[in-house]
Computed example of a mutant assay.
Amino acid sequence: MSNGFLTIAGRVWLLLILFFLYAPIFVMAAMSFNASQFYQLPFEFSTRWYEQLSGNAQILDAALRSVLIASATTLIATALGTAASVALFRYDFRGKRLLQILLFPPIAIPWLISGTAMLIFFFSVGIGRGTPAVIIGHVALALPYVIVTVSARLSSFDIALEEAARSMGANSWTVLRRVTLPWIMPGIVAGALFAFAVSFDQFVVSYFLALPGDTTLPVLIYTAIRQGFTPEINAISTIIIGISMALVLIAARYSRFGGER
């Protein structure tokens, strides 16, 4: 009886936590389909705000810019992160453990601090603000996610497979392309999806590093909320959350934290 009560209590507690996390999102998504601009009830279903959103050139331009920046960030961070993960897996060198530990602080450090530090650094080296600075900043934030995800996949890799391929005459490039990469591909895909999600949703670093006329979608949403909230923000926010959740779920499906799929 005691164990049964604890099991039920645990499930209820879990449901309450999930409700606390997702209820605001569901309410926002529902209000994006409400015909009333002032959220009047009873609820009247309408796609009015999505139709208006489709004709808002400013939001669409910001969304396209965010997609392009996120795509560039994903390509760069995935390539660099995968190469770093393979190097950390294959080679032992002085300071390797310290380097692996230093991958985690960028994930834990508040993005406000990271954005301020990047802004000061980029101006000190002459890069300044703009799209290149935003991409570099996003890559710096996304790299740890890629390295951790790919490294987790590599942790279950049997180095004897590479040795067997070399013993059969395969060179280093062939071993990497035909043996190592196919094995770690789920981790690479998961890391790339994490990188895209981190970049696409990034607000703080984009706010600090983007030029006034080249704002990303999260920055534009923040600006629009300050000027006056409209249900179009609910619509675009619902789309962003849907994309982000889908990417994270797909990434979780592929990564499985280094385990078998």
Rank of each mutant, 00 (worst) to 15 (best):
Y91N: 00
Y91E: 04
F93H: 00
F93Q: 00
R94Q: 07
R94K: 08
K96T: 02
K96E: 08
K96C: 02
R97A: 14
R97M: 02
R97W: 15
L98S: 00
Q100H: 08
Q100V: 05
I101A: 12
I101F: 08
L103Q: 04
L103M: 06
L103H: 09
F104L: 14
P105M: 03
P106G: 09
P106H: 11
I107A: 05
I107K: 01
I107P: 01
A108C: 14
I109R: 11
I109N: 06
P110G: 13
P110F: 13
W111H: 08
L112Y: 05
L112E: 05
I113S: 13
T116F: 12
A117W: 03
M118P: 10
L119A: 06
L119Y: 03
I120E: 15
I120F: 14
I120C: 12
I120L: 15
F121G: 06
F121I: 06
F123Y: 11
S124I: 10
S124C: 15
V125L: 11
I127N: 00
I127L: 07
G128S: 00
G128D: 03
G130E: 13
G130A: 11
V134Y: 10
V134E: 04
V134I: 02
I135D: 10
I135K: 06
I135H: 05
I136D: 10
I136Y: 13
I136C: 13
H138M: 09
H138D: 04
H138Q: 09
V139D: 04
V139K: 05
V139N: 01
A140R: 07
A140H: 13
A140P: 10
L141A: 14
A142Q: 03
P144T: 07
P144S: 07
Y145M: 08
